[in-house]
Nucleic acid binder design. Structure first.
Lengths: 129, 129
DNA sequence: TCCCATTGGTTACACTTGTAAACACATTGT
DNA sequence: ACAATGTGTTTACAAGTGTAACCAATGGGA
């Protein structure tokens, strides 16, 4: 399988976000970005990058000492994976159960609801699934 | 705050499911249930129950040696918590982004879609949120 | 040429999580 | 009274995670 099930930890998600936002990035860029956004020290980011490389989630190209990193998995794929795990655990795998729970808890803002309708309308218009 | 943010691990979710399904349950009932459903040994379940008690997620009433456990948090609340964390991490907090991503990935079955419509219809019928 | 700054790697360490054995105490049939 | 059984507690331990200090190499300026 070309898209193996890779599970990202929360810290790893942050690193991936950095690379998904723009890639490739040199080690320098990545560490600086994450120092700003997360307050992490240089080594922390580099360690995470290594772990992600080991997992097969990022690749690193080394040209003359300087390394640059790029994601090997797409955000959508990671997100889908995460979503399935989550839905299974919390909502017995059922998306509609999730939505109806949220509405019951009144946890959806007017705006969310409007957007939902919008998405559903689009879904109807594009019955390609 | 009376509903503190409690985060459950996957194993802890299993224990809570057991108690949410029926409560109170004696230690015995719980261990047996989880041995069946999860294949866990007695001690595993009891350890988890203790950890959950420490977290304030379950209470245990001790009458004459035998203990019985009951949840202190409701499933809906735990689920909502979990859902918020998840949505923030993966979909920038936006439910509609989640749904539209899923439709783009064609990750929804016909049935899911039908159910979604159903939920939305209900939502329209009950504009109490 | 030699030192400093930059870049990446190695090692570390505490905390969490999953899983359970080992132990201790109570109860009860014989 | 005692052994067997049931019930709960303590201790353990490996793997995973968050976080980073420390070390090694290397390239550029004095």
């Amino acid at each position: 399988m070309s898209i193996p099930n890779i599970n990202l930890t929360t810290a790893e998600w942050s690193v991936m976000e950095c690379l998904w936002q723009k890639s490739p990035r040199t080690g320098r860029e990545a560490t600086e970005w994450l120092k700003k956004s997360m307050g992490w020290s240089r080594s922390t980011t580099l360690t995470l990058l290594r772990r992600l490389e080991a997992k097969g989630a990022v690749a690193c190209d080394d040209q003359g000492g300087i390394k640059s990193f790029r994601p090997l998995i797409r955000r959508e794929d990671a997100a889908l994976q995460e979503t399935e795990d989550f839905l299974d655990r919390v909502y017995k795998g059922s998306l509609s159960l999730m939505i109806s729970s949220l509405t019951k808890k009144q946890a959806l803002s007017q705006q969310e609801i409007a957007e939902l309708h919008e998405v559903l309308r689009e879904m109807e218009a594009n019955p390609d699934d």
